[in-house]
């Protein structure tokens, strides 16, 4: 099984979620089968117009490297989806300058969100 160690990013991302994005209840969980960490939390407001209500989100921190490829493969994503059993996970992409950007990932073909 492929591994993806993202333990170095956990603190940065959970701090960002809690104090910049103002999420509640940000917690970290280890996915033992991948040796990687994933965060859960509750956003301050609804993230997508397609959602009925605010719900708990799963956030997977990954590192954006400029000159090397990362470790995140589709197989790893699949495994994460399998472990968390959620319709979407949010990728927290951490750049080496400290910037964090968040992207939704849905399994399969999804419809673009309503604006």
């Amino acid at each position: 099984m492929v591994k993806m160690d993202n333990s170095g990013l956990i603190r940065l991302v959970s701090t960002n979620l809690a104090f910049e994005q103002l999420w509640d209840n940000v917690r970290e969980t280890q996915l033992t089968n991948l040796n990687c960490w994933i965060l859960t939390g509750r956003p301050a407001h609804k993230l997508s117009n397609d959602d009925d209500d605010i719900c708990d989100e799963w956030v997977l921190p990954v590192e954006l490297l400029q000159y090397r490829c990362g470790r995140l493969t589709l197989e790893i994503l699949d495994t994460v989806f399998h472990s968390v059993k959620s319709e979407r996970i949010t990728l927290a992409i951490v750049s080496d300058d400290g910037t964090i950007v968040y992207y939704f990932i849905y399994k399969g073909l999804h419809k673009p969100k309503k604006n």
């Binding site: 993230l47 997508s48 589709l74 927290a92 968040y102 992207y103 990932i105 399969g108």
Partner: peptide
Amino acid sequence: LGGVDDESDEGVTFFSVEWAGFG
């Protein structure tokens, strides 16, 4: 993203990516 796995016949695995609207 469409992933092709030579070792399985399950066909193509798709993942849809979208900006989360913050960050």
